[in-house]
Simulated scan of single mutants.
Amino acid sequence: MQPDENKKKAKIISDVDHFLSTIDIQKFVFLETPEVISSVLRPHWARRVDGKAQVVQAQGDVLEVVPLGTSKGNGVKILLESLCASPDEVMALGDGENDKEMLQLAGLGVALCNGCEVTKVVADVIGASNDESGVAQAIYKYL
């Protein structure tokens, strides 16, 4: 088998409604300014996938359409089960709306100060920004 045989190729879709009715959504990612995401893309895609998927915004200019119930928190739960570990043994760091459930689950949830309000509200502590090496600072301070 050639290495490229397993790679999926992009294709142009002329009828999005038909396409959405024939697939299970895994993930769509849109890159755009925060203003366009909040005023155009998010409302549009929330209506289009209502009941089939959920729409979440990563920090800033990234909008994700993912299957219902998909979250980083659920991913961390799966990891904890496989490691026989408890949430109290985990520190999670995040800055986007898509980090909310993970920060809530972790024994210590650290939101970066330049993150979105949704993330900062659920965090246990607010760390430095991405520009100030906030992740590294939190690791050194709390671990």
Rank of each mutant, 00 (worst) to 15 (best):
L108Y: 03
E81H: 08
L112V: 11
A53C: 09
E132V: 09
D88G: 15
G127K: 07
L103I: 00
A53R: 07
C116A: 13
G115A: 02
V55F: 06
L103C: 03
S71H: 02
S71K: 00
S129M: 03
G96W: 03
A85Y: 03
L93W: 06
K77E: 11
V121G: 04
Q104W: 03
V56N: 01
E132C: 09
K77P: 04
E89G: 07
A53W: 04
M91Q: 10
N130K: 09
Q57I: 04
N74C: 12
L105D: 00
P87V: 04
D99C: 00
Q54Y: 01
S133G: 11
E64N: 08
Q59A: 15
Q104L: 13
V66A: 03
A123Y: 04
G109F: 01
D50G: 10
K100R: 14
V56F: 09
L68M: 07
A53K: 05
L93T: 08
Q54K: 11
A128V: 06
K72A: 03
E89H: 08
S133K: 15
S82D: 07
D99Y: 01
A138Y: 00
A138L: 05
S133Q: 15
K100I: 12
A106S: 13
E64D: 13
G60Y: 01
K72H: 07
D50Y: 13
V49H: 07
C84Y: 12
E97R: 00
C116Q: 15
A138N: 04
D95Y: 01
N74Y: 09
M102P: 08
K52P: 07
A58S: 15
A136E: 10
C116V: 15
C116E: 15
Q137G: 09
C84T: 13
I126T: 14
Q137E: 12
L112F: 13
L80W: 06
D124W: 05
D61Q: 14
L108H: 03
D50C: 11
N114K: 03
K100W: 03
A136T: 13
D95E: 02
E89K: 14
L68H: 02
S133H: 14
T119H: 07
L93H: 02
L93K: 00
I78R: 14
K52L: 11
Q57T: 13
G109I: 04
Q104S: 12
N114D: 15
A138C: 06
Q104E: 15
L112H: 04
P87M: 02
K72N: 08
S129W: 05
A106I: 06
V118K: 14
V62A: 12
N98Q: 05
K52I: 07
G134S: 06
D50V: 10
L103P: 04
L105A: 00
V90I: 12
E101Y: 02
D95K: 01
